[in-house]
């Protein structure tokens, strides 16, 4: 069953075309990796999917769970089950992490028509989920992403993903700034959430992350579109030979 269908997406920022006819289909249960050199439009793709202001399509279509996404606001897309783990998670000074997490958790529950959790029940639930990601209580008492280390920020992203239980998660350069230990924790966190009903799209520059999160399909993105797709071996090939060979092959 397809979850996400992007068809011929074209998008410009400041009159400059960034996405130039990108197509991508993701089915339930699949893990996709999108790799590509800097400036190929990977982060633009993630913002476009999440519906950030200024990242509207010029042409093409995106459907998610058979719903046209293009007219929906970021929160509506989130409610449908689309999650973006940010490359640079944003600091919210003064906003307690626990309160923030409870708010987003209950707002999702409300949308799904499920019971919201009381403060105490939520704390219990949160502790369990956080423990799996080696997140200590102390960190949850701090302000959202405020003064977090790179690794803490990324773990906090995965914690939110775990709480929201999305249908599709887009991980934008989640490996950047992580040491091996942190990378393992984060990857395990993602793998634990993976099931037959949801999907993951990993956007990364390096193959390294894919040792831990095994992709079913690997796409190479360049100059605003996907130029080659293959299985996990494609990532290894890129790791060994760099992007240039594939790029040359194409031109």
């Amino acid at each position: 069953m397809p979850i996400l269908k992007i068809k011929n997406a074209e998008l410009s920022i400041n009159n400059k075309k960034i996405l130039k006819g990108l197509s991508l289909n993701v089915n339930e249960g699949e893990t996709h990796a999108i790799m590509g050199p800097n400036g190929s439009g990977k982060s633009t793709l993630s913002y476009m999917l999440a519906g950030r202001d200024g990242y509207e399509l010029d042409n093409g279509s995106i459907s998610f769970d058979n719903t046209d996404l293009t007219q929906l606001s970021p929160d509506e897309r989130s409610n449908l089950g689309l999650f973006l783990a940010f490359q640079y998670p944003v600091e919210l000074p003064g906003v307690s992490s626990t309160n923030f997490l409870r708010e987003i958790f209950n707002s999702r529950k409300k949308y799904l028509g499920e019971n919201e959790l009381s403060h105490l029940d939520f704390i219990k639930h949160l502790r369990k989920v956080a423990e799996n990601l080696s997140i200590k209580d102390e960190m949850l008492k701090r302000y959202v992403n405020f003064g977090f280390s790179g690794g803490e920020k990324k773990r906090f992203e995965i914690l939110q993903m775990a709480l929201l239980n999305p249908k599709i998660s887009v991980l934008d350069e989640t490996d950047s700034g992580l040491d091996v230990d942190a990378l393992k924790i984060v990857s395990e966190g993602v793998n634990n959430l993976k099931d037959k009903k949801n999907a993951v799209v990993v956007i990364t520059h390096y193959q390294r992350l894919l040792d831990y999160i095994k992709p079913d399909i690997v796409h190479i993105m360049s100059d605003g579109k996907i130029i080659k797709s293959g299985d996990a071996d494609l990532a290894l090939y890129v790791e060994k030979n760099g992007y240039s060979e594939i790029l040359n092959e194409k031109s």
Partner: peptide, 15 residues
Amino acid sequence: SEDQLFYCMQRGLDA
């Protein structure tokens, strides 16, 4: 900040 708003909205909170 637009970044802050977008971040919160991506998590399902309305504006």
